[in-house]
Amino acid sequence: MDIISVNNVGYEIVRLLGKGKGGYSYLAIKDGKEYVLKQIHHEPCSYYQFGDKIQSEINDYKRLSDIGIRIPKMIDVDVKNERILKEYIDGDTIYDLVCRDMMTEDYISQVREMCSLLYPANTNIDYFPTNFVVCNGQIYYIDFECNNYMDEWNFENWGIKYWSKTPEFMQYWNDHRQ
């Protein structure tokens, strides 16, 4: 097993959870407890411009926490090695639920409740369904990425296109299945 350290504390890497625009997220274990360990990467992304990624994660976490969005707790940050340790939220992603025809109207209602907090705070999140996990019937936004509000990228104009088997969702699914 691989060990990755966050501020000189080693965590056993169990498996890759996913790769996003800004980093790789791994399921990690320490003393029998599960965590998400995110390693920032600097791979090019044609449709998104980054500044200081680790500082953006810290700032975005604080912003979303202050707004009151259900997100995993940020436990530790290793700025030098660009690593973040956060709470692991166990459950299926909205993406997986859409794939298995297990979406419910309640999950849409919950994301709309998040929007009712985000929009007045001039904030959008990345509404792509891989960024949401359902745990005990509640959805959690497991990414920390957020940006200033723009109609083009809000849930109603962009995100909703990926929360059911729309043509946009099916195109993504076809392009990314293994």
Rank of each mutant, 00 (worst) to 15 (best):
P44Q: 13
C45A: 15
S46Q: 14
S46I: 06
S46E: 15
Y48M: 15
Q49E: 15
Q49Y: 09
F50H: 15
G51K: 15
G51R: 11
G51W: 08
D52K: 06
D52C: 07
K53N: 12
I54A: 06
I54M: 14
Q55E: 15
S56A: 15
S56C: 11
E57V: 09
N59P: 01
D60P: 08
D60T: 05
D60G: 07
Y61W: 08
K62G: 04
R63N: 03
R63Q: 03
L64Q: 00
S65A: 11
S65D: 12
S65W: 03
D66Q: 09
D66K: 11
I67D: 04
I67E: 02
I67L: 06
I67R: 04
G68T: 06
G68Y: 12
I69V: 10
R70I: 01
R70Y: 06
R70F: 09
I71P: 01
I71C: 00
I71K: 00
K73S: 10
K73P: 06
D76I: 06
V77M: 00
V77D: 01
V77T: 02
D78H: 05
V79Q: 12
K80Y: 11
N81H: 12
N81Q: 11
E82L: 06
E82V: 05
R83I: 00
I84T: 07
L85S: 09
L85F: 06
K86I: 00
K86A: 00
K86S: 07
E87I: 04
Y88I: 05
I89T: 01
I89C: 03
I89A: 02
D90R: 12
D90Q: 11
G91S: 04
